[in-house]
Design a protein around this nucleic acid. Structure first.
Lengths: 326, 326
DNA sequence: CTGTTAGCGCATTCAG
DNA sequence: CTGAATGCGCTAACAG
């Protein structure tokens, strides 16, 4: 039909005919069928965003903003977004089988575990995909990441510069890429500051409010508690602030704390949180772009973005008596 | 092909043949094409969830949990979820045109503005849809809602029972259903407690942290500040706590505050927030069910769920001097 | 129980 | 510039 030509904006249509068609379309409220188009063109114009665990969205408000960012950008380019989660209890851990064959043109995967078999199988399947917050270390696939080395480095320098010598650390959920990476960078920061690493100063968390609360209590319960605590994300730092309050410990007078991500709550806490800000807009833009280019078969370089330090009131020099402790 | 029969679990296949087909499927890594199925069956097995404004997801963490809940439930029933937002600046405010014809079998719309033309046009189009947190008052479409009258009633009773007589209120974003409804219920609660309404005690917010902060300050700046403030959601209450801290006002000693929703942060604040809990699991279950039944052409009753009061430490009896004020 | 025929709505190819 | 034929991959309806 000539209708197809009009709809797809083909130039080879007489203006007069075009008008007639447009008029008819208006009257009939006609709209092309997406399934037929997809079948014929082998392009669904859908993209799936995948969260290996749904907790990601709950423990890092960060991801919500990012998803929205992606939705907006991809919509402008004519794509729709599927929301997909891979609950660990479930049968399928293969991201490509989450949606049926041909339901999506590409997948954006957030923070898959290092060595994730799903990502590997995806490479084999030939479905375009982009990993956001995977391990920059791991290669062989396109990714967009934030530079933890820079972010953690800034944080550690800030703390060391303030005079802290016993700096505790609270990890994210075990075996997640940023969790591992931030721990490694914590150690590197300690090194650069000429401070020794002590596993006793590391508490395990899982990104959640509750785990931050527990971690703070355990660290403060140490015979020689740290004078500063670095939480792997803001969420856990919120838990830490609550624990401090319950314990009668003042922040930052008694102990300084830092978060990571700079979620919107960070500046509304008491005290406002010193943290590391990741530029969500930039991540979204890069990921959307990479995805679209991949779909079109174009190569595009992966990207590592630079976060920056946001100093607020949850950090200060350590107390004098902390400095003079044995 | 017999393959189709095997895949769809038709009983009329000889076990032996079935085996052979299954084997071949395994070897070829065959997977049925979703577009072709959709074209042929006129069913996409996709459902869109629509946020009239993307801020919904950012200002009410609540919606994130609900979306995840829906994703999980619908996935189990073989449906995939599209994430859709209707930015007000955009051309299309018609939810059904957000996705192409036939891309979705149904739409779940969150909190559309009262009298939303999109919802109306949807009824006309014949695309099944369910409204979540619309106005229970408005009829003519299937919905799942939470009973604000109950929730606000509980809150007001609690406050009045504690002895508060000057109770302030902070609204949500103007013209949103729950914003309007909660304000109305605040007035009703005042009435029931035998207290008069004063527009001076109402501050306008927009659900966000910052607006809660500003509202608290303006209410506390009144010649006769309220002894308790009811925020229309937890998010704004968080802003209020921050304002209180900056102002040197103690909660609940100097002023009691309450939130609404019981987001996960609520119990981690200092002080932990008295609020109203909405049962997200129940809302998700009801919405998913209603949606699916609609798609199958079955009628199903709309539902209004009962929230419950969660009393924590942000409320206490008013200070003695507040009681004796002129 | 299994294979064949036909059509879902579109866009590509080729004729007019 | 416009129309007619064809096939995308699937499944209902109908033979065999």
């Amino acid at each position: 039909m000539t209708v197809s030509r009009v709809i797809n904006g083909s130039p080879n249509v007489r203006p007069e005919t075009r008008e007639r068609v447009l008029k008819a379309i208006g009257e009939l409220a006609y709209s092309p069928n997406a399934a037929a188009r997809a079948l014929n063109s082998r392009r669904s114009r859908n993209i799936g965003i995948i969260f290996p665990r749904k907790e990601y969205l709950l423990t890092a408000p960060f991801y919500v903003e990012l998803s929205l960012e992606l939705e907006g950008r991809l919509k402008k380019r004519g794509y729709h977004l599927f929301l997909g989660t891979l609950s660990s209890e479930e049968e399928t851990s293969d991201p490509s089988s989450l949606f049926g064959e041909g339901k999506v043109d590409g997948l954006i995967i957030f923070a898959p575990a290092p060595g994730d078999q799903g990502v590997a199988s995806l490479s084999a399947k030939g479905l375009p995909f982009v990993v956001v917050f995977g391990r920059p270390g791991e290669t062989g696939f396109p990714f967009v990441d934030s530079d933890n080395s820079l972010g953690m480095g800034l944080l550690m320098e800030h703390l060391a510069g303030l005079g802290h010598r016993r700096i505790g650390f609270v990890t994210g959920a075990p075996s997640e890429p940023h969790s591992l990476d931030r721990l490694a960078q914590y150690r590197a920061g300690l090194d650069r500051a000429g401070l020794g690493f002590s596993s006793g100063l590391v508490a395990e968390g899982d990104w959640s409010l509750g785990s931050g609360y527990a971690a703070f209590r355990s660290l403060l319960g140490l015979p020689e508690p740290p004078s500063a605590i670095v939480f792997s994300n803001d969420q856990m730092a919120i838990g830490g602030i609550k624990a401090a309050h319950d314990l009668g410990v003042r922040i930052p007078e008694d102990v300084s704390i830092t978060g990571y991500d700079d979620i919107q709550y960070a500046s509304f806490l008491t005290p406002p949180l010193t943290t590391v800000r990741q530029d969500i807009g930039a991540v979204g833009e890069a990921a959307a772009d990479l995805m679209l280019r991949r779909i079109e078969g174009l190569e595009s370089p992966s990207l590592v973005l630079s976060p920056r330090l946001v100093v607020r009131e949850s950090t200060s020099p350590p107390r004098a008596d902390a400095l003079h402790r044995p």
